[in-house]
Amino acid sequence: MTSQGNTALKTTQDAPQSDIAVSVRNVSKIYGGAIHALNDMTLDFPRGQLTSLLGPSGCGKTTLLKIIGGLLDQTSGEILVNGKPVDGPGPDRAFVFQDFALMPWATVIRNVAFGLELRGIAKSEREAVAEKYIAAVGLSGFEKQYPHELSGGMRQRVGLARALSVNADVLLLDEPFSAVDEQTRRKFQEDLLALVEHEKKTFIFVTHSIEEAVYVSDQIALLLARPSRVSEIIKPDIDRSISPDALRRDPVYLDTVERIWSSLRSYVE
């Protein structure tokens, strides 16, 4: 879990296995000709790491994530995923939604396997994959339940398993834990760290919480509103081998939280 500090490495068409998984190049987004949500943003997301987008409400975090996901078109600029320009959603990226976005009429296993169902994978095969990720997020035994029978935290685990089961390189998570309670949230954060370590995927994670960002991230992009831009990139240099509770009292952790807070405050004031 060391940040490699190679963001300067150039991504080119013929080097898809570069260390940059997602590259945002001079991206602007103007809604309805008037609202400048993103303004000439440039940002790299190192492969296999978790990068958080942190910033005040309305600074364009969701907008950026949706553009990377291909759900929204940028007004100008370019997004490269593995060196290839993004044009719409693709199998190399998977989304986790803030409000879970589960199909209430489908069981847990069908929800988890939905991405594979859309690709026309045979039922037995896709359910075997879904089964694996249901177990990975700790929901074994709930396969035949419906979303309304689950708690908020469990629903988001379904959303996570669904995104994992399509085996995308890049996972896009828009405030995935904001709708769950604090205890569940902490457990989630720990599980997320384990996932980043095991799954070797690139995570792009939107959050409002400074503590959460510092706790889970290899790299934090601080975004500021009006005009929206990256103000700072912070790489929390935290020793993750210590226990979660010790970590939350770790001086480096606390210092980083404090540093981000003062950074944001100076802009708020």
Binding site: G90, P91, A101, R119, R162
Partner: peptide, 9 residues
């Protein structure tokens, strides 16, 4: 929900 379907192709 619609975005979800769209994002999974």
């Amino acid at each position: 929900l619609v975005e979800m379907a769209h994002s999974f192709g």
